[in-house]
């Protein structure tokens, strides 16, 4: 079985986001970028499936700016076998919408014919939580989102999902799209020798036109603003003062 893992280049999760003063967006020039944390978990899961003998090949795919090849090299250094970069824009501030990403991924999948797609549940920049579900719709495949456990068993997979009420287990037909949640695994770090080896692994470059996809956004960004800041509170010296204050404002 071939496993396809879409990986997104996003602002590093430790970076404090700065909204540009003119309301045109978030400042992404010269900030640290990394692989979306959920996608690291997806890559890790694919590698584990390969180590167990349940997968033969892992293909990582990224859509965005040319610099996303760094993200793909990280995936290759972790253990992916090959990578496909779809250069869809040369502007680091242009986010390609999940619908367009899903259409491009469908094009890749039509060519690659994987048995399983492992994506992240959510990109931590746009917080959409949509691409896996959209891709599954376009392909007419089953979907299993927010996975905390994945077991591939022949022509189906049994997936445990993190849902509002707790956990739900479902059985889905293969091929399938799984989106991964935080507790599925702990991703490994790439070792130095593997980082060196990754430089020689194949990385193909494509464009949206190769798949006949128009990436023009459906959502026009009118403006981007800072959330309302909370006003500074106060420190209280002890429990008695805290209780008195809470009573005073009617919070208890």
């Amino acid at each position: 079985m071939k496993v396809l893992v879409p990986v997104k280049r996003v602002i590093d999760y430790n970076v404090k986001v700065r909204v540009k003063a003119d309301g045109s967006g978030v400042d992404l020039a010269n900030v640290k970028m990394s692989m979306n944390p959920f996608d690291e978990i997806a890559v890790e899961e694919a590698i584990r499936l390969k180590e167990k003998g349940a997968a033969e090949e892992i293909v990582a795919v990224s859509i965005g700016v040319k610099q996303a090849q760094e993200t793909l090299r990280t995936a290759l250094a972790m253990g992916a076998d090959r990578a496909i970069l779809v250069v869809a824009t040369d502007d680091v501030h242009q986010d390609i919408e999940p619908l367009a990403v899903a259409k491009i991924l469908k094009g890749v999948i039509d060519e690659e014919q994987p048995g399983l797609v492992l994506a992240g549940k959510q990109a931590i920049d746009n917080d959409m939580n949509a691409t896996g579900q959209m891709l599954s719709a376009l392909l007419g495949w089953s979907q299993a989102t927010f996975a905390s456990e994945v077991n591939v068993e022949g022509d189906h997979a049994v997936v445990t999902r993190e849902v509002d009420g707790g956990l739900q287990t479902i059985k889905v037909k293969m091929p399938t799209i799984v989106t991964v949640d935080l507790r599925l695994n702990e991703p490994r770090y790439a070792s130095l020798p593997n980082i060196m080896k990754a430089k020689k692994k194949p990385l193909d470059e494509k464009t949206p036109a190769d798949y006949g996809v128009d990436v023009a956004p459906r959502l026009e960004i009118v403006k981007t603003s800072e959330p309302e800041a909370r006003k500074a509170g106060e420190m209280v010296p002890d429990v008695d003062t805290l209780v008195a204050k809470l009573k005073e404002v009617g919070a208890v």
């Binding site: 978030v26 746009n126 917080d127 459906r218 959502l219 960004i221 981007t224």
Partner: peptide, 30 residues
């Protein structure tokens, strides 16, 4: 497209939603 986690309705085509873990609010017109 999907409009995820809408926090305000501006008009029938325009909505606000948080991005970057709520560190920015985007107004988008569909």
């Amino acid at each position: 497209m999907i409009l995820s986690d809408v926090t305000a309705v501006v008009d029938a085509d325009t909505f606000e939603r948080p991005i970057y873990a709520g560190n920015a609010i985007q107004t988008v017109k569909s």
